[in-house]
């Protein structure tokens, strides 16, 4: 009887520990994702404050040409662009600048 009680106690203790570990790992994961979220926001803020010439996101995002949308892969976000004739054929071309957000590296 005592042995059975002991086994039940050990089982409960083990379950408790695992639950705690699960909870901790979940909390850790959540914290990590929050941290990633925060750092990604900070990077965007930094880029707006610290770059002057190419970082035209705030200026151009609204005026981003819709015809360029098809050229932005899912791993990237539009960053900036230049429009004009690049090859002297009288037609208006684009230099498209994109930021990697897909974690490819």
């Amino acid at each position: 009887m005592r042995f059975n009680t002991f086994l039940i106690f050990v089982a409960l203790l083990s379950f408790g520990c695992n639950s705690r570990k699960d909870l901790q790992s979940k909390e850790k994961g959540q914290s990590s994702s929050n941290s990633n979220l925060r750092s990604s926001v900070i990077i965007k803020q930094d880029s707006i404050e610290l770059t002057s010439n190419i970082n035209l996101v705030s200026e151009h995002k609204e005026g981003f040409p819709k015809e360029l949308l098809l050229f932005v892969p899912s791993e990237f976000e539009f960053y900036s662009f230049q429009e004009g004739d690049l090859n002297k054929d009288g037609l208006s071309d684009y230099i498209l600048i994109m930021e990697n957000v897909g974690g490819l590296y």
Partner: peptide, 9 residues
């Protein structure tokens, strides 16, 4: 981090 593409008309 930044990729530059040339898109031609």
């Amino acid at each position: 981090e930044l990729r530059v593409d040339l898109i031609m008309r």
